[in-house]
Structure formats: structure tokens, C-alpha cells
Amino acid sequence: MAATMELRCWGGDWGLPSVHTESLIVLAYAKFSGATITVTPIDWTWKTLTGTVPELVYQGSTITEPAQILNFLRKQQRFNADYELSARQGADTMAYIALLEEKLRPALLHTFWVDAENYANLTRPWFASRSPFPLNFLVPGRHANTALSRILLTKGESPLHTITEVEGKIYSEAKECLNLLSHRLGTAYYFFGNTPCSLDAFVFGFVAPLHKASLPSSPLQSHLRQLDNLQRFCDHILNAHFSSHPGSPQPVQETVDANLQKLTQLVNKESNLIEKVLLLSSPWMTT
């Protein structure tokens, strides 16, 4: 019997198999390529702080980062969703993935982790409610600090030094990126031909959370609402490949989650001081 491949990742919600971009990329590619993996959410475990997700475990070896995991599935396990691509399409795939990383990722990090309203009402309560005590006080803040540092490191060149100065630039570039993706996709279900490939997995991973999350404040989500084909692209992949995933809406569970989120928000309002004290006293927890 072949050894089982285990994927450790953040769990699902909002109608998605995972709310985490990198985890979504790997989950989608596994579906597209026919790879059989056992999904183990890290929710409510200590790995919410110490784990690097997504993380593929196979025969004692651990592979992290979507690009490395996809490469392992293609070359070592012969699960290749790109086998029908031409050399030109392969080159285009690499170019579009680089575009996503450079132009769209900073705006997504800002939308979910830096925008104060989104962070307070959606991102922080969600990740806090999926982390065990006392990590629920640490995990959201750590991710937020990492996101802010990454944005300023990649986009904060002179004369733009503060996050307020950088905001306009990153959102303008992200909207341009979404427009390019929309133009390239056109009326097709997938970016190249009639079957999905690694580019579809990456675009899905980046765009689906923006499409499905109930964000209180997001000019980028408002822009996506104008691009019907990208929204249909995400919905089609969910319906065709993830019709019965754990993130599918369940009325009873939604009520429980809503109540849990309200409770978490109340707790979080009282925990700002605790979070700051713990972070300052634990320099090993910062990145």
C-alpha cells in the first residue's frame, strides 16, 4: 500500500476548504492533478504558532511552500496538472505567478491583516477562535506584524516609507493585476484550455478568499465584484472540485461560529494589553 501524503494547513470557512491562500493553492492543485492527500487542519493546536503551513508530510520528509510542494507532486509523485501545457504556456504560467506575488499579495496582506476594520472584525476573531489559549492572544498579532513588515519591506521604497503612504500604490497595482487576470481568462473556465493547471491553482488561492470573505471594508473586494468572470472562476472551481469540503456552509455550524466570533471579539477587546505585554516579553515570537 502506498504511503499516505498528509497536508497540514489552516482549516476552512466562508465556503472555502481553507481560508489561507497558500493552503488553498496546494489543495486546489491536488484536486486538479488527482493527488490523494489526507488534510489535517492545524486549527486549535499549538502548530497555529509553531507550524509552517502548508506543510506536506510524506514518509518522514516534510515539504513546505506551495511551489516546493507542487514541484514534489509533479516530479516525485507524478501528479502533474501541467502536462498538456506548451512551452509558451509554461512560461506564461511562471510570469503570472510572479505577477500575483508582486502585485496582488501585498494588497491582500493589507486587506486582511493591516486594515484596522477588517482585522478587528474578521481576521483577528477568526484566527483567535482557531488557536488554543493562550495562543489566541498571540497568533493574530504575530501574523499582522509579519504582514506589515512584508509590505513595507517589498513596497516601502523611497519616498514611500509608512504604510499609509504605501496603501495607494499597492491597491492600484492589485487592481491592475486583477484586470490583467480577468482579461486573460476571458469567458473560459480555466486559463489554459479545458482543464485546470497550476496557474489556476495559484489564482484560485489568491482570489477566492477575497471573493468569499465578508469584509467590512475592502476597496479591492469592491473592484473584484466588477469582474464577473473571476468570480465565476472561483465559484466553478469550488463547485466542480470542492462540492463537499469542510468549509461548505452548514446552517447550524454558522450560528455556532457567529456566536463564537462575537464572544471572541469581546475577549479580544480586553486582551490588547495582554497581547502587547506577551509579545514584548517574548522576542522569539516575532519575525
Rank of each mutant, 00 (worst) to 15 (best):
Q76E: 15
R8P: 01
P106I: 02
Y96Q: 10
L135E: 07
N179T: 14
S33N: 07
I237L: 04
W113F: 15
T123M: 13
H245Y: 01
T50H: 02
T38N: 07
R78H: 14
L100E: 06
S214D: 03
D82F: 00
S182Y: 07
L108V: 04
T187E: 13
N272I: 13
P246I: 10
L266M: 02
D228V: 13
N268V: 00
A95Q: 15
D92Y: 03
K47Q: 12
E84D: 15
A67L: 03
V139M: 10
Q59R: 14
F204P: 01
I237A: 03
R105Y: 07
S61M: 12
Y189H: 07
D43C: 04
E254Y: 00
I274K: 06
H211Q: 08
E176N: 08
E157S: 13
A35C: 12
Y83E: 10
A30T: 08
H223D: 11
W44G: 03
H211Y: 02
W14I: 01
C234Y: 08
C234F: 11
A98R: 08
N136V: 03
P249R: 06
E84Y: 14
F72P: 09
S131G: 08
D228H: 15
L273Y: 05
N239K: 12
I63C: 02
L49K: 08
T123Q: 13
Q250I: 03
L16R: 09
A258K: 05
A35T: 07
V39T: 15
T62I: 12
L70Y: 00
P251H: 12
L122K: 04
Y119S: 07
E270P: 00
L266V: 03
V267L: 15
R142K: 12
Q68K: 11
T286E: 09
I97C: 05
S244V: 11
G90E: 05
E84C: 14
P54A: 08
E6S: 06
P219S: 15
D13K: 10
R78V: 06
V139H: 12
N259F: 04
N118M: 10
H245D: 14
Q77W: 00
T111W: 04
D115Q: 13
E176Q: 11
Q89C: 14
T21Q: 07
T287V: 11
L27S: 09
L227E: 03
V139A: 12
L148I: 05
R8H: 15
T162P: 02
P219D: 13
V207R: 01
W14M: 05
